[in-house]
């Protein structure tokens, strides 16, 4: 039986590495992550990459596939391979390479913290459960942006991140926006201050690369526009 072959060029090494060519059988419904795993199991055990859930939940498997950031566990080879062409796999853009396809995500997560992308409960805990009506304006605004899996795809798609190493980036700002809409949160002023700095939401060019590539179909661009509005309002009120 004749089997088709999948040819790949995979980045090896750190920042100063090189591409290495691999070949393996093309299989039905094979994902990019399947291909990388098969290479690691059968051809080169030293190939470094990252994954956990394999079902699009954990956000750890993102890589550049032919120059486009993708979640590789949910990307089928047949859907992205241009007819008979070799596939090129590289580590995510805008983050330091650890080795091969694995990047150091520390800066990415540090910026979530810097954007105050965490819940601030305040000094004294409320006596009872907070009731947040599902159809309230804030809850709906948060819902639209909430399903982020921290994959870093938007971060690597954003040119402003490449230009300004301090730019907080789409994912952190998107998370911050969900918290701005959390009526239980008690840290709103310091959060707005954190995202209104020179490297915060006002640096976004709204060119929507983040939104175009987010695998969860979120729109960090829209969340950032919300932050721009809220920080401007707060500045006009004199709150920040």
């Amino acid at each position: 039986m004749q089997t088709d072959t999948l040819e790949l060029d995979i980045w090896r090494g750190g920042r100063d590495g090189a591409f290495q060519a691999f070949e393996l059988p093309l299989r039905e419904s094979q994902t990019i992550l399947d291909a990388v795993t098969e290479i690691q199991r059968t051809q080169d055990a030293s190939l470094a990459y990252r994954f956990a859930c394999r079902v699009g939940m954990c956000g750890s498997c993102a890589m550049m596939v032919d120059g486009i950031p993708r979640w590789t566990c949910r990307t089928r080879v047949v859907d992205v391979q241009r007819k008979g062409k070799r596939l090129k796999l590289e580590p995510l853009r805008n983050l330091p390479v650890v080795k091969d396809l694995a990047v150091d995500m520390a800066a990415f997560f540090d910026k979530w913290r810097d954007a105050k992308g965490y819940f601030e409960p305040g000094e004294s805990p409320p006596a009872d459960f907070a009731v947040v009506p599902p159809d309230s304006r804030e809850r709906r605004a948060a819902d639209v942006a909430i399903e982020c899996i921290n994959c870093g795809i938007c971060y690597s798609a954003c040119d402003v991140v490449s230009w300004d190493k301090d730019y907080l980036g789409p994912a952190a700002l998107n998370r911050s926006w969900t918290l701005v809409n959390d009526v239980r949160d008690r840290g709103q002023t310091s959060r707005l201050e954190a995202v209104a700095t020179d490297s915060g939401c006002h640096s976004c060019h709204s060119h929507m690369s983040c939104t175009a590539f987010c695998p969860k179909q979120l729109s960090p661009t829209q969340s950032i526009a919300g932050l721009k509005r809220e920080t401007m309002r707060a500045a006009l009120r004199g709150a920040i």
Binding site: T197, G200, T231, M232, A235, L236
Partner: peptide, 14 residues
Amino acid sequence: NAASNAAWTARLLV
């Protein structure tokens, strides 16, 4: 510093 930077940036934007 972050707070005053933020206040400035937001006002510049306004």
